[in-house]
Amino acid sequence: MSYVLIIGAKSDIAKAIAREYAKHGYDLYLAARNVSELEEFANDIKIRFNRNIKCFELDILDYISHKYFYDSLEEKPLGVISAVGYLGDVSETQKTINTNYTGVVNLINIIADDFEQRKSGFIVAISSVAGDRGRKSNYIYGSAKAALTAYLSGLRNRLYDANVHVMTVKPGFVATKMTEGMDLPEKLTAKPEDVAKDIYKAQQNGKNVLYTKWIWKWIMLIIKSIPEFQFKKMNL
């Protein structure tokens, strides 16, 4: 068994993760909506790393399909990485919550049951530093990620006895399509490849919560420590 399943595989971070894992000898299941757009990417990985890649159509909002999708995998993956993320505006509250939280949780629940039974596997999900404290600029997204973070923490607790490792990833700014056009501070902004390297290393080492870049751990510590009466007046 050598497959790692990546969901939300079309995102820039997911692609970087796919390359990183293929580079280290893993085969890949890539799942995403309109998966045909991933064909060239999958071909690139085959040429680069001589690995097996299989692409699957998956709509994270089509909850009913999740079980069918997972059951259809003949060889079950030895780990799953969710790179699902949607940064919508306030008018897209439902979609933001359902993509970032409900959909991901629904699918991971199914996989977690399988891993728990097999007593092996790893689950990595990309949450966000935005979930550490709600701010007016993106609190719908942030609150969905906060819920995901809490879910992962509980799941980690539950699966500990089954020897299944759960890792929460909290990226800060990352230069991707999702953040294109935003004026991000260069020193605090990671490249997708750096995030992927961090994730691979941390997952292999069994880390529980990963901030990437690492400095975000300290930035968020400061942000979380600001008293609410002051925080509410701030422009963040």
């Binding site: 060239e40 690139d44 040429i47």
Partner: peptide, 9 residues
Amino acid sequence: RSYNYFLDF
């Protein structure tokens, strides 16, 4: 830089 796939070898 983001247009960076190997197409064939």
